[in-house]
Design a binder for these strands. Sequence first.
DNA 1: ACCTGGCCTGCACGCTAACGGCAGGTTCCG
DNA 2: CGGAACCTGCCGTTAGCGTGCAGGCCAGGT
Lengths: 254, 254
Amino acid sequence: MVTMDARSAGAARSTKHVELRRPDGDPVRVLVVDDEPTLADLLSMALRYEGWEVRSAPDGMAALRTAKQFQPDAVVLDVMLPDLDGFEVLRRLRGQAPSVPVLFLTAKDAVEDRVAGLTVGGDDYVTKPFSLEEVVARLRALMRRSGVGVTARDEAVLVVGDLSLDEDSHEVRRGGDLITLTATEFELLRYLMRNPRRVLSKAQILDRVWSYDFGGQANVVELYISYLRKKIDVGRQPMIHTLRGAGYVLKPAV
Amino acid sequence: MVTMDARSAGAARSTKHVELRRPDGDPVRVLVVDDEPTLADLLSMALRYEGWEVRSAPDGMAALRTAKQFQPDAVVLDVMLPDLDGFEVLRRLRGQAPSVPVLFLTAKDAVEDRVAGLTVGGDDYVTKPFSLEEVVARLRALMRRSGVGVTARDEAVLVVGDLSLDEDSHEVRRGGDLITLTATEFELLRYLMRNPRRVLSKAQILDRVWSYDFGGQANVVELYISYLRKKIDVGRQPMIHTLRGAGYVLKPAV
DNA sequence: ACCTGGCCTGCACGCTAACGGCAGGTTCCG
DNA sequence: CGGAACCTGCCGTTAGCGTGCAGGCCAGGT
């Protein structure tokens, strides 16, 4: 009956969102700079899955070379690199392209020291370990603000049925009622709302919403789904549906 | 609100404020003159993020050359330059463009009185180390007074709900009651009021409201938020909200 | 130039929301 | 009817947040 190839994670994604596009119609280009191959690959795959064109570089010099030739619309940059300091890379990068937004990856403790100057130019950062949802969301936000993807008037508000989620204010409403979510609940709902009417397996959700080094049980997904239901579906037409053995779906209430 | 074409290439912010614009519709142009590359970059990024077109020069002669060709609407000028004295630059600049407003950057102990003397011409100055909020606010004020950005009658009063803040008189009111704020509290509130209904992380606030060389704990943000709450929210419908793990939001009280 | 008061910042403690493990209960399906 | 998959109440732990206190610095006044 219903399509059950929910785990075809590698397959190119069908039409879900309005694709971000550059003015010339080409897909958005993102450069990933990280010396850990595992992490770089993970990120590259996730971003490619968003429909973006991705290239990656293992160190600062390579990043600058690639950037010159690739002309990315955004850069994901690990601050800890074997050759150059991440901030040095930023400086030189700004010489080439003054307005390319940069998303920094940084270890938790390192942030405190030199957080200064990261967010002033519209740049942003996430601390390791991060969730892919977070990285993608922040990248989208960065590009939205810097004018990439102007063709898609892709505002910061996701809407599914009478449910809406504002990524700027973190405001969530179901038919007028304001709903308060915790950080994790918010990320989970955002992921669901980005993929409405589509089965998402617990594994997919775990990979996407929780940090890549999360060691816990897949049980947390069930737990947080139940939290969301209490806040969103209780006393209303349910929007979150369980598909036994497959996963969960979010769709407008009839 | 006037319709704004999306063609604003570069770093146009999402629709939050009315963008300052020149009579011809192009973005406002600002020239930054500083010999410290780090500082020049920091300023350039921040100003670009305001939606302005920025160019920078490392010394006095370059500044004059760039000014002639770039025709800026405002100039940010370090008084300490390798070649020419900042005042000399000003004099020659006035030869080219008599009415361009200038914002001086000066060390604390330095020639404060001499600079003060120059502000009679409508110019202004900021002492290092400064906060970006301060620089941007003063630049806006300068341009407002000199008639740049005539299209946007962007008054000096910020209003969010029943809360108002006058940038000229520093008067803050919540529903009629006059509220007295310290300098830091004022800058923090101004930043919040410039970004209503938008989550601001502690890092963003730090980068923006505190001086660029501030090395202290991110704890101060929490502290000053708590001060503001005491003065603004106590005994009323709260306008400042905490989003755990995300930041703070200011919004009209329902 | 000294004094004084107000403002900024560091430190540290207490608090509470949020997270996630566990386990017993429930629903669904074969 | 049995088992698998899922739901959810309970609760210990943690980390993010609020705030009182005290020292130091700057400004404004005498």
